[in-house]
Structure formats: C-alpha cells, structure tokens
C-alpha cells in the first residue's frame, strides 16, 4: 500500500513523467585530429526504449563512459546521429540525472543543499522539489543526513545523496556511470536493491554502466556487452528474470546462465587470461 502512494508521489513532479527513448545510429568518438587521432568508440547503435533499464558492460577502456557522455549530449559526436524521444539531440540533455562513480557532491554544501542544487539551477518550485528531496532521502535511507556535509557521510551515504540529486527533478532519464564501483559489496547489494525499487515505481529510462556482471544481470532488462579498441557493442542479452530481483541472485538458475554467457564472451575477448 505504501508502495502505491509512493508511486504517485514520485511521478507527479512538474517535469516529464514517462521515460525517454534514445536512438543512436553509427555514433563514433575520435579524439584529436590527423595522424595523432585516437578512434575511441564506435560505430555504435543504440535503441533504448522508454522506461527500459539497459546496462553497458565491458572491460576497462572500452568506451562505456564515452558512450554515456555521447548519449547525453555532454560530449559531441564525431559522427553518427542521435535522437532522444525522436528529436535530434543538439545540446546537452537536461531531462536527465547523472550519477558518476565518484559522488561528485560539492563539499561546501550540505547533503540537502547538494540535492537542491537541481532546483536552484533549473529554477524549479522550491516547495515541490523540497518535498521530493525529503521523500528521496527517506526512500534511500538518508533520514537525518540532510544537514550533514559530504565528508561527514560514509561512502555509501554519499552515493545515495548523489542518486537523490539525480532523481529529485524527476528526469525522464537516468545515466549511471559505475555508480556502485567505489562501494563495498554489502553496501553495493543494498543500493542495487534500493535503486531497483525506485526504478520499478518510476520507470525512468536508465543507461547503466558497470563492469560487474552481477550488477548488470541483477538490474537490467537488457545488457549490451562491449569490446575494446575501438569500443563496440558485440552482444545483446535480454535478461528475463522476475522483479524485484533478490539480493542473492544465485537463487535463479537462469542468473547463472546469463552470467556464464557474459563470462564466456569476456573469455573470448581475452579479458580473462586463466
């Protein structure tokens, strides 16, 4: 019951409600020019549907992060086309929340003020956003952390604040770049679950970057496996597991099958040398 009331509260922001779609065709990224140019990524095609949870997984340096920056318009494409909700993306996407591996909270703002930065900069209604912030703090296990400065919080708490910051303005898309990479295993499992529950209620489009097979399979509707130099998507795996997924994914025999599949792709790529 609580769940139901939360759903309406979380999705009745003043901005958009439904998730956005991302369509990319043959996007590439090249750094530098001439003979010194470095072809980092692509060509890559993406077709992410509204409300879909998609993970990009691959070895270090495969261009996962670059893909995220391109898909959000934060870095210009070297070639290819990119559409969000069917419209060509010409400037940085603003209907978006971003979470990086480091929390990137401003150390001179309290946890709440870091989250309210979205409201200040976007010029949104203060009371409405404040209410959402309080609710997100609640949902993310941050009760009582509002007035604390980032360095007074644990690593897991900081990352939770940064997730709250990414969601407080009710964006249609959530971009996460190895958001749990710097956390310990226990915290990671808990935050993974909390994120899944939030996502189930709000159904934002999520592009999730990780190098953890467990995270990718544990969270995603679809996993895209990437290879290195230049980064390309070499395999697409639909994850057909019930939600919410348990902390211990080994409960599903299918989980092992999915994980095994990704392992074997990595093995073929030479990511593992055993």
């Amino acid at each position: 019951m609580n769940q139901v009331s939360m759903t309406s509260a979380l999705s009745t922001g003043q901005t958009s409600v439904a998730g956005a779609s991302i369509t990319a065709q043959a996007i590439t990224k090249t750094y530098g020019e001439g003979p010194a140019a470095f072809h980092a990524l692509g060509p890559i095609d993406l077709d992410i549907k509204p409300g879909e949870f998609v993970s990009l997984i691959g070895p270090s340096g495969c261009g996962k992060s670059t893909t995220l920056l391109l898909a959000s318009g934060l870095e210009p494409l070297s070639s290819g086309t990119l559409e969000v909700d069917g419209k060509p993306l010409t400037r940085p996407l603003s209907e978006v929340g971003i979470v990086f591996q480091d929390h990137l909270l401003l150390d001179f703002r309290t946890a709440l003020d870091n989250v309210m930065l979205q409201q200040e900069i976007r010029g949104l209604d203060k009371a409405v956003i404040r209410e959402r912030a309080d609710m997100l703090f609640d949902r993310l296990g941050l009760k009582g952390a509002q007035k604390k400065y980032p360095r007074q919080l644990s690593g897991g708490m900081r990352q939770r604040v940064s997730i709250a910051r990414a969601l407080v303005h009710d964006p249609s898309m959530l971009l996460m770049d190895e958001p749990f990479g710097a956390l310990d295993a226990i915290t990671r499992t808990q935050i993974r679950h909390d994120l899944e529950m939030l996502w189930l209620e709000t159904r934002k489009t999520v592009l999730f970057i990780t190098h953890s097979i467990e995270e990718a399979v544990g969270l995603s509707d679809r996993v895209l496996v990437m290879s290195t130099s230049p980064g390309r998507i070499i395999e697409e795996i639909k994850i057909d597991l019930p939600r919410p997924r348990p902390a211990h994914l080994g409960e599903y025999p299918e989980f092992s099958a999915y994980a095994e599949k990704i392992y074997s792709i990595f093995a073929k790529l030479g990511v593992y040398k055993f």
Partner: peptide, 9 residues
C-alpha cells in the same frame, strides 16, 4: 562537475 552543471542547464 562541468558535465553535471551542463546537464542541469
């Protein structure tokens, strides 16, 4: 941080 600020417009 500049990515964040730009994404906020």
């Amino acid at each position: 941080q500049y990515y964040l600020s730009r994404s906020m417009g």
